[in-house]
Amino acid sequence: NITNLCPFDEVFNATRFASVYAWNRKRISNCVADYSVLYNFAPFFAFKCYGVSPTKLNDLCFTNVYADSFVIRGNEVSQIAPGQTGNIADYNYKLPDDFTGCVIAWNSNKLDSKVGGNYNYLYRLFRKSNLKPFERDISTEIYQAGNKPCNGVAGFNCYFPLRSYGFRPTYGVGHQPYRVVVLSFELLHAPATVCGPKKST
């Protein structure tokens, strides 16, 4: 009989979020998941679920829940969905086509923008091939755009693969920082350890 609540607040209220190319993952297990707390949290810009209804989450049990978190621009949030393409979905964070879970995003301009620009948040701009679902690539190898080998030196046709967002408070909404948490639900042939409040007695 599990009684402790799942530590969703640790994920959602973290002081610093990860850059999207180096997205953070927390495994959540052996706890009671009260999703209504999240669902009623006012400032969400997006709360979209795939393969599961957000209002039914509290009735369900899962083997594991993974909480992935990172920061992207407002106009990139739409790429955090199954079957998407674009710089983020291709080179930074890719969801599987059969994704079961929820994508939760909110504007973090007050936290993550600075006058003069916040350059701490990076994304991958160049990559030889697209990421596989949930693949994480933190390499900083110089990207070779031409035929000539770069030998690890940036220059003509040789690019550092990461780019900084440089968030400023005055940017338009599409270019403002958004914090994103992706909850993915794993249902294995194993005992369920993460259940909603109704199922955990």
Rank of each mutant, 00 (worst) to 15 (best):
T140G: 11
T63V: 10
P133L: 01
Y121Q: 09
V11E: 03
S200Q: 13
H189A: 14
G174L: 13
G172F: 08
F44E: 13
Q79S: 05
A105G: 02
Q84R: 09
F70D: 02
Y21A: 05
N13L: 04
G166S: 12
W106S: 00
R168S: 13
C31S: 06
I72R: 00
Y178A: 09
A192I: 10
V180I: 08
G174Q: 13
T140K: 11
Y121L: 13
F12H: 01
E186A: 05
F44R: 10
Y91G: 05
G155N: 12
G51A: 04
P191E: 14
C31N: 07
N130A: 13
Y50N: 01
Y93Q: 01
A33D: 05
G74R: 09
E10C: 05
Y93W: 01
V181R: 00
L188E: 15
Y39C: 08
P54V: 13
Y165H: 06
G152A: 10
T170H: 14
N147M: 11
E186H: 10
P149Q: 13
F126Y: 15
L122S: 15
P133T: 04
T63I: 07
F47I: 10
F8W: 08
N1P: 10
G172A: 13
D112M: 00
I72T: 04
K132C: 07
F126V: 13
V71Q: 01
G166I: 08
V181W: 02
Y123P: 02
N92C: 02
P149Y: 09
K26F: 06
R27D: 09
V32A: 07
Q79F: 01
A105Y: 08
K48Q: 09
N24D: 12
T100R: 13
T170L: 08
A18S: 11
Y21D: 05
Y123D: 05
N75Y: 08
F45S: 15
G83R: 10
R124Q: 04
V77A: 03
A192S: 12
Y93L: 03
A22D: 11
G117R: 07
R25D: 03
E76W: 04
F45H: 15
H189C: 08
A81K: 06
L38D: 03
V115H: 14
I28R: 00
V180M: 04
I88M: 02
S129Q: 13
G86T: 03
D112I: 00
F12S: 02
S184N: 10
T85C: 06
K94P: 01
F44T: 09
A192C: 10
C31E: 07
Y50L: 01
G172T: 13
F167L: 04
A46R: 14
N13C: 02
G74N: 03
L188P: 12
Y93K: 02
N147R: 12
A190W: 08
N64K: 10
S139P: 02
A145C: 09
T55I: 08
C102T: 00
Y119T: 15
P96D: 04
D34R: 03
Y121P: 06
K48Y: 05
A190E: 14
V20M: 02
A145H: 13
K128C: 08
Q176H: 05
T201Y: 13
E76M: 03
I80W: 00
D98S: 09
L125H: 15
T100W: 06
F47P: 04
S184C: 10
P43W: 04
L187E: 10
V180L: 03
S69V: 02
V77F: 05
S69M: 05
Q176D: 06
T170Q: 13
N92I: 01
Y171G: 13
F45Y: 15
L131W: 01
D68P: 00
W106H: 01
C49M: 00
I2F: 12
T193D: 13
L111W: 13
F47D: 01
G74S: 06
K48P: 01
D97I: 09
L183T: 00
R127N: 05
V153G: 13
K198W: 11
E141C: 08
I28W: 15
V153K: 15
C6T: 05
E186R: 07
N107M: 03
S139K: 09
P161V: 03
P169L: 04
G86E: 02
F126W: 15
I88A: 03
Y123F: 10
R163M: 11
E76R: 00
I28C: 04
K114P: 07
F12W: 02
R73H: 05
N118K: 08
S69W: 02
Q84E: 09
Y35I: 15
A46I: 14
T100A: 06
G172V: 12
L122N: 15
C158H: 06
V65I: 14
F70V: 01
L125Y: 14
K128I: 07
C31I: 04
I104F: 15
G152V: 07
F8A: 03
E186K: 08
N1M: 07
S53D: 15
Y178Q: 04
C102H: 00
L5N: 12
F44L: 10
G155K: 11
T170F: 08
A33R: 05
Y35P: 08
E10D: 10
I2N: 15
N40R: 14
S69N: 02
K148P: 09
Q176T: 03
K198H: 13
D97R: 09
V32P: 03
Y35H: 05
N87A: 15
R73G: 09
Y66I: 11
C61T: 10
V153P: 09
Y66G: 01
L131N: 03
G117Y: 07
G86R: 02
F185G: 03
C150N: 06
V180A: 01
K128M: 08
S29T: 13
V65A: 08
L125K: 15
C158W: 05
N151I: 08
P133Q: 04
L187Y: 10
C158I: 04
H189F: 08
A14D: 06
D9H: 13
L125Q: 15
V77S: 05
